[in-house]
Design a binder for these strands. Structure first.
Lengths: 195, 195
DNA sequence: GTCTATAGTGCGATAGAC
DNA sequence: GTCTATCGCACTATAGAC
């Protein structure tokens, strides 16, 4: 069976797209299901046909975004002689993704403080998608390239530094092209971990 | 005129205290003005006598906390020969404050993503209370102790690293006493800025 | 699968007595 | 300054026709 021929994609995706735009502009709590449905051009009943609740919609949106992001930045293979270079590539891909998908990035920040989704749920999604980051750090430690700090602390720190820098460039897009800024951002990140 | 003799402090403070506890446990949006008044042991009308709106209460609470925190960590005088040591003292005071005032710290994190308070309002409070951080960084750059990265980026990075580390220790209180962790946290912070 | 219509709930804020 | 009582509104979610 081929896909529907009409140009509006399936209504579920329209709802997710509309929700993302509204969440980022107004916050998650401040966005009503009715307004999501209206922006998507469907009825409220349709929203609740596709998602059992507002929070189920939030969760699915969050999972989709984290999955897509992880796909973008996950590396191929590790090379000890090129670890800093590889880290730089991953960092820059991550920053570029955040800049090209500023709404998605902002939404992830909102979800971090959105309490109806439990901390466990979010931690599980993070562990599922970003296990390779832990591998890289352990690899770097084994080869004396990365300082011997506790790994959980380093993971949190790396995540925090990425959020901070991407947020900075999203709020100052004109500076993202300025190598003085983009190289400083990576150096701030990388130097904190090196021996 | 002496202060009121009855042991409940003034009701305005009771309302602020109750609000903080509820906000941290449930989030700001999820906490109703009625529940704040109930927890404070006063009527809802009393809340709206002291604060024109829920958001005015949120803002006053936020200002009070930021002010108290800045008082705790602001330094005395700068000494170029001891900059790292001074930074370490400030960092540790900040982490200690966050641990001893975990609710206040969590609330600041919630406010960061609370959109009814404008970004301008929050930035203004930050600039008012934490101007001395910028002074320290410029001082360190002038004396070649701190890398010559753009100052706004460094300020954001420092703030982000503090939030990340304090959050980690609040979620893992038993590790805060472990010097392996506390020194790693400072080193992650400090090394990112040094030449 | 999508719609209209609405049930049921809980919110922020106000009025007015004391 | 504090209370009780309540208004008016907007929200999530459901029911039932098509």
């Amino acid at each position: 069976m081929p896909v529907n021929s009409s140009q509006p994609k399936n209504k579920k995706q329209q709802l997710l797209d509309a929700a993302l735009a509204l969440f980022v502009n107004q916050g998650i709590y401040a966005t009503s299901t009715a307004s999501i449905a209206k922006k998507a051009g469907v009825a409220t009943g349709t929203l609740f046909h596709h998602f059992p609740s507002k929070d189920a919609l939030v969760l699915e949106l969050y999972k989709n975004i984290k999955q897509e992001f992880a796909l973008q930045i996950a590396p191929f293979e590790l090379d000890v002689t090129q670890l800093e270079q590889q880290a730089k590539v991953i960092w820059q891909q991550a920053i570029d993704w955040a800049l090209a998908n500023a709404d998605q990035q902002q939404f992830c920040l909102l979800v971090m403080q959105y309490q109806p989704l439990s901390a466990n749920t979010k931690a599980q999604i993070f562990a599922d998608e970003f296990g390779f980051l832990k591998e890289i750090m352990l690899f770097g430690q084994q080869h004396q390239l990365i300082a011997d700090y506790p790994i959980e602390l380093m993971l949190e720190s790396a995540h925090g530094q990425f959020l901070t820098s991407s947020q900075f460039f999203i709020n100052n897009t004109e500076l993202a092209q300025d190598t003085k800024y983009s190289e400083a951002a990576f150096n701030l990140f990388w130097k904190s971990f090196t021996n």
